[in-house]
Design a protein around this nucleic acid. Structure first.
Lengths: 275, 275
DNA sequence: GTTCCGCATGAATCGATAG
DNA sequence: ACTATCGATTCATGCGGAA
C-alpha cells in the first residue's frame, strides 16, 4: 500500500491555495463560515460582502481542481429580521460566472435541528450541499453509495438507531461501508439527492459542524483510494480525519491556530481503517 | 355554516388576476409550469425568459394578497445539459425587488420519487416550497400542524396494528390530527421546514404535480375556515379540491380548456369534509 | 455487559433592552 | 433611528452514571 498523506496547513486559504499545483485535486469538500456566524472565532463575514469575500478563494479552487473532479460546498443562509438572506443564491450565480458548472444541489436533512420557537417560522432542519464542476465529464462512482431497498431494510435501520448504531459510529467514523458489507446479497438501489443525517452534537473536546458521514459519503461517491481531497476551511479536521480513514490523500487549510492544533490532534489519533 | 365558494376561472392569470379585489386573498398556493417542461400545454416557457414571464403575474398576486397573507410557490429547476438552471434563484431575487419578502424555503422531500439512473446524477427527490409575504406580520397557525414527538412515535409504532398505522397516515393527509392530539396530549411538537410526503401514485387522466397533503398542510398552517385560497395555475384542480374539503373559499385559474374541465369535474365530485 | 434515565448541547431566531 | 447584546424558546442525540 502506498503511503497516504494527510497535510494540514495553517494559513489563509486565499494565499495558501496559490501554492498548490493546478489540476491536482479530485474532490473539494468544505463548509465555509456562514455569513454572520461564528463571530467569536472567524469574525463573522457580513452577508453583503460574502460573495466578494468568497470569489478569490473559489478562483483558486477552480485552478487546483482536476477537470474530472468535484467541488462540494456545504452552506445555508440564515434568517434575519424575518427574512432569509440571499447571499447563497448570489454566490451560486457568481460562481457560474467565474466558470463553474452548477451541477447539483443535494439536501442534507438534519434530523435533530436546533430547537426553538418563533411566531413566524419553524426550526431550520436542512442545509445545502452544492455541487460544482469544471467540466461535464466528472467522475462519479455511484455504486459505492448504494443503499438497501425494501421494508426489511427500514426495520434494520430502526434497530440500528439504538445500540448498534453507536458501536458502528464509534469504531468506524465513515460508517456506511461496514453497513453495506452487511447488506451484501440484498437488493441495493441508488440513493437520491436527499441525505438524512444527524449532526454530532456532543463530542469529547469539540463539536463538529457536520457528522463524519457527510464527507464520507461524498468521498466515496467522487474519489477512489489514493485520490486527493481538499478542505480549505478545515475547522476541527473532520474532512481530513475521514479522508485518512478512507485511504485518500488530503490537504486541509485552517486559518485559526486553535482549530489548527485541534485538527492536528484529531488526525494524529486517527487510524487507517479498511472497510 | 356559511356557504363555501369554489370558483374556477378559465383564462390567462395575467389578465384574470386583474379582476380580483386587492387585499382579498389569505393564501396563494401554486405550482407554476416549470421552464421547458409541459411544452405542449403551456407553450414551454424558456428558462431565460422565465422571470420576465412570471413577474407580471406576481405583481398581481402581490396586489390581491392580504397584508397578513402568504404566497407559497412550489417550484424546482430542472437539470439541463448536465447543469442546474438558475432561473429559480433569479426569480427569488426578482420577486424581492418587486416588493416581496422571501421569508422561508421549505423542502418537500418526495419519499417515493421516480426511479431512474443517470451517469452523473441521482434521482431528484426534493422540491422547493418558497414562502413570500407582503409584510412581516403574516398569520401563521402553527398549532394546526403539530406532529407526534420523535421518541413517542418510535415507541408507538412498535406496538401498533396495521389499522392504527393507516389511521396515522390519514391524519398526515388531512384529518385525524385532533383525535391523535387527544390521545397523546402534550406529546406533540412543532414540525420543521422539511416536509416528508409521498407523491401521489394513482392518477387517472393527468399528471398530478403534487399530492393533496401538500396544499392541505399549508392551508392548515396559513388559513382558517372561511378564508380565501388562490391558485393561479390550477391544473387538475388539487388546490381547489382541498380548499373545498377544508371549508375554505377558493379561486382557481386555469388557461387550458382541457385542464379547466378536468378541474371542474374533480371539484364537483368533492364533498365537504369536516375534520 | 445490558438497559434505562437524566442531562447538556447544538452553523437558530426573535423581540426587548441598551447604547 | 440604527446597531449591539441578551434572554427565552425548544427537541433530537449521545454520553455518563445507575440499576
Amino acid at each position: 500500500m502506498d503511503k497516504i498523506q494527510t497535510k494540514i496547513i495553517l494559513g489563509d486559504s486565499k494565499e495558501v491555495l496559490k501554492t498548490l499545483h493546478a489540476n491536482s485535486i479530485d474532490l473539494i469538500f468544505t463548509s465555509p463560515p456562514y455569513a454572520d456566524s461564528r463571530k467569536n472565532t472567524y469574525g463573522g463575514i457580513k452577508p453583503d460582502i460574502y460573495v466578494e469575500w468568497f470569489l478569490p478563494i473559489s478562483e483558486q479552487l477552480l485552478r487546483v481542481l482536476k477537470p474530472t473532479g468535484s467541488f462540494i460546498l456545504n452552506i445555508k443562509e440564515k434568517a434575519d429580521n424575518g427574512e432569509r438572506s440571499t447571499y447563497v443564491l448570489e454566490l451560486i450565480l457568481a460562481l457560474r460566472k467565474q466558470g463553474w458548472l452548477w451541477t447539483e444541489e443535494f439536501i442534507w436533512h438534519k434530523k435533530n435541528s436546533y430547537p426553538g420557537k418563533w411566531p413566524n417560522r419553524f426550526r431550520d432542519a436542512w442545509e445545502r450541499l452544492l455541487q460544482f464542476n469544471k467540466t461535464r465529464d466528472f467522475k462519479m462512482y455511484q455504486d459505492e453509495v448504494k443503499i438497501p431497498m425494501g421494508d426489511w431494510a427500514k426495520t434494520r435501520l430502526k434497530n440500528l438507531s439504538d445500540t448498534d448504531k453507536r458501536r458502528d459510529n464509534a469504531k468506524n467514523g465513515s460508517g456506511f461501508g461496514k453497513k453495506i458489507a452487511n447488506w451484501v446479497g440484498k437488493d441495493l438501489v441508488y440513493p437520491t439527492n436527499v441525505l438524512h443525517l444527524a449532526p454530532e452534537t456532543s463530542n469529547k473536546n469539540h463539536s463538529a459542524v457536520f457528522p463524519k458521514e457527510l464527507p464520507a459519503w461524498f468521498i466515496k461517491l467522487f474519489t477512489k483510494t489514493g485520490d486527493w481531497v481538499l478542505d480549505p476551511f478545515l475547522g476541527s479536521g473532520t474532512t481530513s480525519v475521514v479522508s485518512k480513514k478512507m485511504l485518500r490523500n488530503s490537504i486541509g487549510i485552517e486559518i485559526l491556530d486553535e482549530y489548527y492544533k485541534l485538527a492536528m490532534s484529531n488526525i494524529a489519533e486517527t487510524e487507517f481503517t479498511l472497510f
